[in-house]
């Protein structure tokens, strides 16, 4: 019951706010909607028993990425005329393309998947699993990230990637001397 409610609320938030993100004229409101959409996704994670990921979603997407985006919007606010058209000239074609993509994905999920998946894969119901296993997920995740038999290399690579991105972002966005003067 609670799970369904969480899922429905989460989906409505994610999709509705996502729609606002892609259609809104006011970029700032778009960013707010993006935040709400992230919140909805976090709710979807909750309905999937991934509490840790939901918290991570809040921390990283809302606490970091959204704020970064809002900062960028404020820094480039002169370009934010709400009067001009938010869409470019190819918006109809784009609509067609994304509808096509959705149609493909939808048919893949609804029609093709049942053709490929053997009957052993439970599609309708979640795999029953003890609470203890889900509770241990975070512990397992931690040991998988730093264990030698886990994702230690990708994990370290990800940290290097973040470091490089940080350095790169600072260098790219650093005002050049002539700009300051």
């Amino acid at each position: 019951m609670a799970e369904q409610i969480t899922f429905i609320i989460g989906s409505i938030l994610a999709l509705g706010a996502g729609f606002i993100v892609v259609t809104n004229r006011n970029l700032f409101h778009g960013a707010l909607a993006l935040m709400i959409s992230f919140l909805g996704v976090a709710a979807i994670y909750l309905s999937l028993d991934a509490g840790f990921l939901a918290a991570a979603q809040l921390l990283i997407y809302i606490g970091a990425i959204s704020i970064l985006i809002i900062f960028a919007i404020m820094l480039t606010r002169r370009m934010m005329q709400t009067t001009e058209d938010p869409f470019n000239s190819q918006f109809l074609l784009a609509l067609a393309a994304s509808v096509t993509v959705f149609a493909i994905l939808f048919s893949a999920i609804v029609y093709v998947w049942p053709l490929t998946a053997s009957n052993s894969v439970p599609l309708a119901a979640k795999t029953a699993v003890a609470d203890a296993v889900l509770q241990d997920t975070v512990v397992n995740l931690g040991s998988a990230f730093v264990g030698a038999d886990g994702y230690v290399i990708p994990f370290e690579l990800a940290s290097i990637l973040l470091l490089a991105a940080m350095v790169g972002a600072i260098i790219v966005a650093w005002p050049k001397p002539e700009d300051v003067a």
């Binding site: 935040m35 959204s66 704020i67």
Partner: peptide, 24 residues
């Protein structure tokens, strides 16, 4: 929550957004 402290940190990072909204 088994990630209680993490939850606290996530929520308090969201509170930053409120200040930005107010300022803007």
């Amino acid at each position: 929550l088994n990630v209680g402290v993490f939850y606290v940190l996530s929520i308090s990072s969201v509170s930053v957004v409120a200040l930005l909204l107010a300022g803007w």
